[in-house]
Every structure is written in structure tokens, then in C-alpha cells.
């Protein structure tokens, strides 16, 4: 059986909102180390994944490895019934075909329970090797959202150029072109003002062209984290990571566009 109590429903709500438009259904893999998932979009261009470590739950119990097939549209609708500050308890009894979600209000005076039907999903699994990236950019997630939104008004794709100076996002379209340069700033710490600067750690300058449609989907994870890490190497898929506090992360991999 699985029983996992997450102190704040808002975390699960935000996670589901940030993947539901990219993936319609996927297996949640549960083990004694936590709950994870990975799935590609239908066109095999983007991979979404997340991990919530067992220590992010209190308590967490998973007796054996489970693969629970979930339809994201259903889970999203059910999670809308939870208050942001509700406690959510995820429960699965062995050999059942449903997953139970219990929402408890902060004062424990309102307890709601929803069951979601599980699916039998035969999904493809991508083996992503542990790799060292040539360039690691860390920047404000809200800044990242703004840049993707702004450049979408110009073109369908963005070129990300990372150099020692900083990181530049450029788009070109039929009506013109636009670019935003973020210079490296001294500290990426919040420094109590909620402002996250930009840092670029690099072995080599990297230049990649990516679809803005996908990047705009990834920005739905921005409410989970003040910062986003963009890990890039020339010519291979980019990894975007949004940390979920210190209990896990959401990662997206996006295949770059290739020059003919």
C-alpha cells in the first residue's frame, strides 16, 4: 500500500498544473524513496518529469514499488477541490483500481475524500544519462516567464546564447525581431528582497534554438520556485529544472531545433 501525507496541497496542485498541458496521462512511480514520474509529449519533443522525495511527506509509507496510471485532466479537476493550505493524503490499497485523495482543512473541521480511477498505461521510458552540461544558467523564474511570453509575440522559436557576459534570448519573425540580454549579477541569493539574479557557469559558450511554445508550457512551473536552472550543451536536449522547496523538483527536457 501507499500512504503519503503532504502538508500543503498547493504543492501538488502546482505540479499537476505545470505538466497537464504537456502530458495527458502517465504512471506515477512510487517507491520507498518517494513519488516520481516522467513522460514525453505526443510528438517526442519534450519530456516532463518530477520527483517528490519521501521526506517531503509526513508520514510516508510505500511497502512495494507501484506504478499508478493517472489521467492528468482528472487529477487536476479533483485537486481544484482542495484548498491551498489543506493537507492532502494520497492513499492506494494494494490491487485496487482507484487512488484516494483526502483533503483536510487546516483546522481539521472539513475532510473531503475523492477517488480517482487508475489507468493501465504502457508508457515509453527515456534513459537519460547523467551528463555534465557545458553551461548552467540560473535565473529568476518569473523573469524567464516574462521573456518567453514577450518573445512569443515576435516568433515561434528563441535562440539562447550563453556566454561569460550573461544569457541572451533572441527571436525573429515575419514582423521583426527582439532580444533580451540578462547580464550576470553578483548574487543569485534572494537577499531578503525576493530578487533572483542571473548566474552563468560555463565550460564553453552555448547557442541553442528552442521552440517557444514548449518553453511557455514549462513556465507554468514558475509558481513552484523563485529560480529556474537551464542546463545546456551544444546540440543536445536542454534541461530546465524548477526546485520544489527542498523536497524535490520538476524537470523538463526539450530537444533543440537543428539547422538543416
Amino acid at each position: 500500500m501507499l500512504e503519503a501525507r503532504l502538508p500543503q496541497a498547493s504543492i501538488l496542485k502546482k505540479i499537476v498544473e505545470s505538466v497537464k498541458d504537456l502530458v495527458s496521462q502517465a504512471n506515477f512511480d512510487c517507491s520507498d524513496s518517494g513519488i516520481s514520474f516522467q513522460a514525453m509529449d505526443e510528438s517526442n519533443i519534450a519530456l516532463s518529469s518530477f520527483l517528490l522525495r519521501a521526506d517531503g511527506f509526513d508520514p510516508y509509507r510505500c511497502d512495494r514499488n507501484l506504478s499508478l496510471g493517472i489521467k492528468f485532466a482528472s487529477l487536476s479537476k479533483i485537486l481544484k477541490c482542495a484548498g491551498n493550505d489543506d493537507v492532502v493524503i494520497i492513499r492506494y490499497m494494494d490491487d485496487a483500481d482507484i487512488l484516494s485523495l483526502v483533503f483536510e482543512s487546516p483546522n481539521n473541521e472539513r475532510i473531503s475524500e475523492f477517488d480517482i480511477k487508475l489507468l493501465d498505461i504502457d508508457s515509453e521510458y527515456l534513459s537519460i544519462p547523467d551528463q555534465e552540461f557545458e553551461c548552467k544558467v540560473k535565473m529568476s523564474s518569473s523573469e524567464f516567464s516574462r521573456i518567453c511570453r514577450d518573445l512569443m509575440t515576435i516568433g515561434a522559436s528563441v535562440v539562447i546564447d550563453a556566454t561569460k557576459e550573461g544569457v541572451k534570448f533572441s527571436a525573429t519573425g515575419d514582423d521583426g525581431s527582439g532580444s533580451v540580454l540578462l547580464k550576470q549579477s553578483g548574487s543569485i541569493d534572494n537577499e531578503g528582497r525576493g530578487v533572483v539574479g542571473t548566474s552563468v557557469e560555463m565550460v564553453e559558450p552555448v547557442s541553442l534554438e528552442l521552440s517557444l511554445k514548449y518553453l511557455n508550457n514549462f513556465t507554468k512551473a514558475a509558481p513552484l520556485s523563485d529560480s529556474v536552472a537551464i542546463n545546456m550543451s551544444n546540440g543536445i536536449p536542454v534541461m530546465f529544472q524548477f526546485d520544489v522547496g527542498d523536497i524535490g523538483y520538476i524537470r523538463y527536457f526539450l530537444a533543440p531545433q537543428i539547422k538543416d
Partner: peptide
């Protein structure tokens, strides 16, 4: 002109 790459051309699918 550029063409959209696919993840399965970079990673092993199982």
C-alpha cells in the same frame, strides 16, 4: 531554416 529535433534521437527509449 531549422528543423525540430526529437528526444528519441538523443536518448534510449525503453
Amino acid at each position: 531554416q531549422s528543423q525540430q529535433g526529437r528526444l528519441d534521437s538523443f536518448f534510449k527509449v525503453s
